[in-house]
Design a protein around this nucleic acid. Structure first.
Lengths: 158, 158
DNA sequence: AATTGATGGTTACATTTGCAACCATATCGT
DNA sequence: ACGATATGGTTGCAAATGTAACCATCAATT
């Protein structure tokens, strides 16, 4: 018999997606309201802020975004004068990205916001919940890493 | 000092989103390839399949989708002749949705797919990982429920 | 029964996304 | 040195999404 019960509520992809959406949207509301940033932009800022000068491609890898998303986010941040590009001398295809002073300032404010939100979350979810979650996520992250290796004739995406 | 390190990789919203995307997209690939379904459509089908006859609004609540998404998904499934609507006699604003025979057939196949995927996941992630994840998700779900109550003068969304 | 306000559901419009094609430059094999 | 192929990055276009406005019906108040 294959017609057994199936409940969306206990289906892992559904549950994960719901949780991610809830947690993510609430945070997004903060920086969207305060700075009008989109999520790709915030991620790019975060990547650049924490790792310093790097290329678009590196940003994409670091923050798991498709290159088009990165491209557009970089453009937006550039408009805002929060980052500047510079051509690589040796290889003229790639350009290095770096936050401007204003960008770094914004970064500092944003991560402060992020930290506050994280502790707020920890409060709501409870220490044990957070810990369990983290363990589970780590397990998935391993799967992601594994699945990233060896596959993909076109390592274009993600 | 507020300039401490901040790593996107350990920021909960980021981690959750990444995990959800990975797990969700891989599953979506299955039903997208096989049936050309979108996620809202799959969710609607799942809701209807497991709970039987219900209204659009109920589908939305059951599967946490905005009413416009539900509306479009219902339309698509109707085109496909997987569901039929019927007006409520007492209250003519609302319509009851029900899967057709073909819809139920599809539902059975889909949940079979879903079950296979879930066990595949459990295998990859490991029993302990799954358990931790589930505990953590349950904690978040409680927060979601709590935050749903009392608030919102317009209980329109979600 | 007429006005006001909810409610279920759809539609129009702007924004965001994903995909594929593309451009420029670089690398490899010969 | 030359053509094939790969790579970093951008762009065009179609599809998915969110928001707000909307329509029809119902409920409550008067």
């Amino acid at each position: 018999m294959t017609t057994d019960s199936f409940e969306l509520e206990q289906f892992l992809p559904y549950r994960l997606n719901r949780a991610a959406e809830f947690v993510g949207l609430r945070f997004a509301a903060h920086y969207k309201a305060k700075y009008g940033l989109t999520r790709p932009e915030w991620r790019t800022l975060a990547a650049l802020g924490s790792s310093g000068r790097m290329t678009s491609k590196a940003v994409g890898i670091h923050s798991s975004m498709h290159k088009t998303k990165v491209s557009r986010a970089v453009f937006a941040l550039e408009q805002r004068r929060w980052l500047k590009r510079s051509q690589d001398e040796a290889d003229r295809r790639l350009e290095h990205l770096e936050l401007t002073a204003a960008g770094q300032q914004a970064y500092r404010e944003l991560i402060e916001l992020a930290r506050r939100y994280q502790t707020e979350l920890e409060l709501e979810i409870g220490e044990s919940g957070i810990e369990a979650l983290s363990t589970g996520l780590t397990a998935i992250e391993q799967v992601i890493r594994r699945s990233g290796k060896g596959k993909r004739p076109e390592p274009d995406d993600l």
